[in-house]
């Protein structure tokens, strides 16, 4: 079996396993990274989102084979960054977290969005989050949190 090599949160990983496996399963089962959640398993909800080379991707429909040679960041790595701290403060201050199952994915979406657009408008934030379903919050507090993070974290993105 061919091996798959990639970087995970800065560290090199080599795995000898079926490359058709869902990257989400590899993360959660082989690598004990349970920050990405499974909400739908069909790319619809974004709970399983991770960053591949800095872009948001849904790991539940990402075959491991496509991760070969790429740079992966999950919430486990991202939470060690300064940008994360700004986002966390903003999510808490705006009351953006309810049940929380969507939130690690929302943080990944927030990062991917701010990385490409450091001062997004409300509408741009809504589009940036359009692949991340939240059933609890109605999104408005999450949108406010991202605006707050964009302001307070000026220069970080």
């Amino acid at each position: 079996m061919q091996s798959v090599k990639f970087r995970l949160n800065g560290n090199p990983v080599t795995l000898k396993t079926d490359p058709t496996r869902r990257f989400l399963d590899v993360l959660r089962e082989d690598l004990s990274h349970t920050g990405p959640k499974e909400g739908c398993g069909e790319g619809e909800c974004g709970a399983c989102a991770v960053l591949i080379d800095g872009h948001i991707t849904n790991s539940c429909i990402l075959p491991l084979g496509n991760v070969d040679g790429r740079d992966v960041m999950t919430i486990e790595g991202y939470r060690e960054t300064e940008r994360y701290r700004v986002l966390e403060e903003a999510y808490i201050a705006e009351g953006a977290v309810q049940c929380g199952i969507c939130i690690p994915g929302m943080i990944i979406a927030s990062e991917s969005l701010l990385h490409h657009n450091p001062s997004p408008t409300d509408d741009e934030i809504r589009i940036g989050l359009s692949g991340n379903l939240c059933r609890c919050t109605g999104y408005n507090m999450i949108i406010r949190a991202i605006k707050r993070a964009a302001e307070r974290g000026k220069g970080l993105w």
């Binding site: 999950t74 919430i75 939130i103």
Partner: peptide
């Protein structure tokens, strides 16, 4: 601040 927010946000 919600009591469990940080734990949820950080995964």
């Amino acid at each position: 601040p919600k009591i469990d927010a940080s734990e949820k946000i950080s995964g």
